[in-house]
């Protein structure tokens, strides 16, 4: 039990509310929420931030983030964030979006926010599946992966190949910072946290759009235990997606390159 000499080295962040998260046991959404909240707290931006939410499992996430919030319709978060950004030029504005939300229905809004160099940050949660609606195929679903709408496994000749969002976005001149992390291990989680911080720093420095892709799990719809799901990320998602920092603002070079 607590002894006087000991000090707290890890405690819940002020960036999250007291509300218990509704996600399935072991779901990466909770880890990613915490990372964003910790970074905003450490940067002293909790009072100066407006988050914009997705539709997906994280549709109700404004209850958890201790910052102002505007919820968007499915895929439209980058457009909503653009409106907020133009209305409140000095705030930190970020979107939180799943792979269905960003890579399917909302790819136009996301790409054009990047093309405009909109000074917002997007946290892109890639679990290779539609979680909320019960495990359908996403544009990020791997070839051969079985989902409820690809029951025989995703076939390239019918549905093409998984889209590598960070790679695609790194080609857009308006995107100033693009990084791709994961949640499969403590090391990966800490690395992802650094990316998230650099993305917000990029925004505050006025460099342009920033995106952090985070490989995440969906134990429920993958039919795996949370521990196995993390292994599955490591063995299957990581090799299929570009990882690391793909693009850093020219002034701030020095981060590791993929």
């Amino acid at each position: 039990m607590p002894e006087a000499a000991e000090k707290c080295v890890f405690k819940p962040t002020e960036g999250l509310t007291e509300k218990p998260l509704h996600y399935c046991p072991g779901c990466s959404h909770g880890i990613i929420h915490r990372l964003i909240a910790e970074v905003l707290e450490e940067m002293g931006q909790l009072d100066n931030t407006v988050g914009v939410g997705p539709v997906g499992c994280a549709a109700f996430c404004e209850q958890y983030f201790n910052v102002d919030w505007v919820a968007a319709a499915h895929g439209r978060a980058p457009a909503v964030a653009t409106g907020v950004r133009r209305a409140v030029p000095d705030a930190v504005v970020f979107t939180y979006q799943g792979d269905g939300d960003l890579a399917a229905i909302g790819i136009a809004e996301a790409m054009h926010a990047a093309i405009r160099g909109e000074k917002i940050t997007t946290i892109f949660v890639n679990n290779a599946i539609y979680g909320m609606t019960g495990g359908q195929m996403a544009p990020t679903t791997l070839i051969g992966m079985k989902t409820t709408t690809s029951p025989y496994g995703r076939k390239a000749e019918e549905t093409g190949y998984p889209v590598d969002i960070p790679k695609l976005f790194s080609e857009i001149p308006g995107a100033a910072y693009v990084a791709s992390g994961s949640t499969d291990s403590p090391k990966a989680v800490l690395q992802t946290k650094k990316y998230i911080r650099r993305a917000f720093e990029t925004q505050l420095a006025g460099h342009g759009y920033s995106l952090v892709s985070v490989l995440s799990n969906c134990p429920t719809n993958w039919g795996l235990t949370p521990v196995k799901a993390m292994e599955w990320i490591r063995e299957n998602l990581v090799p299929n997606y570009t990882m690391g920092e793909l693009k850093v603002p020219t002034a701030a070079k020095g981060g590791e390159q993929a």
């Binding site: 607590p2 000991e6 000090k7 707290c8 080295v9 890890f10 405690k11 819940p12 962040t13 999250l16 218990p20 998260l21 996600y23 046991p25 072991g26 779901c27 990466s28 959404h29 909770g30 880890i31 915490r34 291990s185 403590p186 989680v189 800490l190």
Partner: peptide, 16 residues
């Protein structure tokens, strides 16, 4: 703190 870093439900507080 490795455990707390992985906890999706912010259920762990660590002392040292």
């Amino acid at each position: 703190s490795l455990c707390a870093i992985m906890c999706p439900d912010v259920a762990i507080t660590v002392y040292r």
